[in-house]
Design a protein around this nucleic acid. Sequence first.
DNA 1: CGTGTTTGACAATGCACGTTGTCAATCTAA
DNA 2: TTAGATTGACAACGTGCATTGTCAAACACG
Lengths: 220, 220
Amino acid sequence: MQDRVAQRRALLLVAALEAFGTRGFHAVTVREICAGAGLTERYFYESFKSLEALFSALYLQLNGQLKQATLAALIAANANSSASDSSSRIDVLAGAALRVLLEFIRDDPRRARVMLIDAISISHDVQQISGQITREYMELTRRFIDQLFPDAASRGVDLDLIASGLLGSNIHIATHWVREGLKTPFDVVLCNCLAIYQALGAYWPKLAASTMPDKPTPAA
Amino acid sequence: MQDRVAQRRALLLVAALEAFGTRGFHAVTVREICAGAGLTERYFYESFKSLEALFSALYLQLNGQLKQATLAALIAANANSSASDSSSRIDVLAGAALRVLLEFIRDDPRRARVMLIDAISISHDVQQISGQITREYMELTRRFIDQLFPDAASRGVDLDLIASGLLGSNIHIATHWVREGLKTPFDVVLCNCLAIYQALGAYWPKLAASTMPDKPTPAA
DNA sequence: CGTGTTTGACAATGCACGTTGTCAATCTAA
DNA sequence: TTAGATTGACAACGTGCATTGTCAAACACG
């Protein structure tokens, strides 16, 4: 009965989120997962080839949820602000995406451990997946910037790097937030994440205008 | 002879950088470390209680080097630019610190794996250390901002969060850089890292002036 | 020289885990 | 009811590793 198999698989994923999300990937064993899911080892191998495979499945599941929510929010936000200036479109679009991300983490901080911390340090296979997903988010950010400031591809400015930096700032702020027990109010976190986008948005025209002046290069 | 012990310890640290920095902490065994160092297991336990202890020692060593170089560069840069406006002091100070960081990574990318990737996902003990060090860098960044823009502690702006974000952008850009084989030119990476600081610096006065307006809050 | 310490190679132990297998209990369907 | 599939508890095997121990060679120094 394939229904039953899928249900067990789902149970395993729930147990995986609990185990990986609280103790971290490398502190978890197959037996623990099975105990958490109320199943025996046999049913683990029924659905997953290894712990890594389970982790990958969980990671992909979480990312699917987040991506779907993000895209939905972006579409909704875009509809509401089609005729605004660049500055307030940043507020609306980046704000909507950031809100979804932070809610996703706040609603279940175990996700942060899985998606933001462990995913990048496990085996090569998982790093491959995480790298791919990171690139997707970078691409989203890059297009976002590119659309708002078509003149941004000026000399010396690398949109991929800026996008990577923005992504990194979100990731780091979110993990730091979780690590401190979410004690900083949600809106404060959101505002300050957004402030970095806003600052870059405000600064961008200047960047595009100037030729990115050489900095003093004291003794390489 | 205590000289000999210290020398073996140093050999182990060299081997640790190679092993941890290329294959990652969890893919490394005591035996591999010993083989890499040309020593036998006994001398491992002579200097370290466990692989984790070795990793911690390596991590602290690398951070000591980086911190020392960073502070030296900041002092030197500060001396050269004591009488400039805020904007160019950002260029000089943040540029100097960023240059040191990126050189540190470029000169030996294995350090990135140890310091930026693995350190945050290993056992609780190591995470404690890494959290402490992260806080140090955040504190440095925070003071840096605070000094340049004393009016920055305005309503809704959390300097810790901004500092965390800046740190995260540097970390993410650096790891991304390494992951792509350092193919992006050094100066481009530096400029774009710096651009985020510059953007925030330019944006800060506006932030402090306005009351951090409420963003539209579409369906929390 | 020769004694005691340091070194190097490696065997031995023990543990934790992944993985597969056994077997009886339970459920399903005719 | 009964044959066959499904389930659950758990034993069994093999592996890989950390950690400790053995022993002989090399060395340091009186």
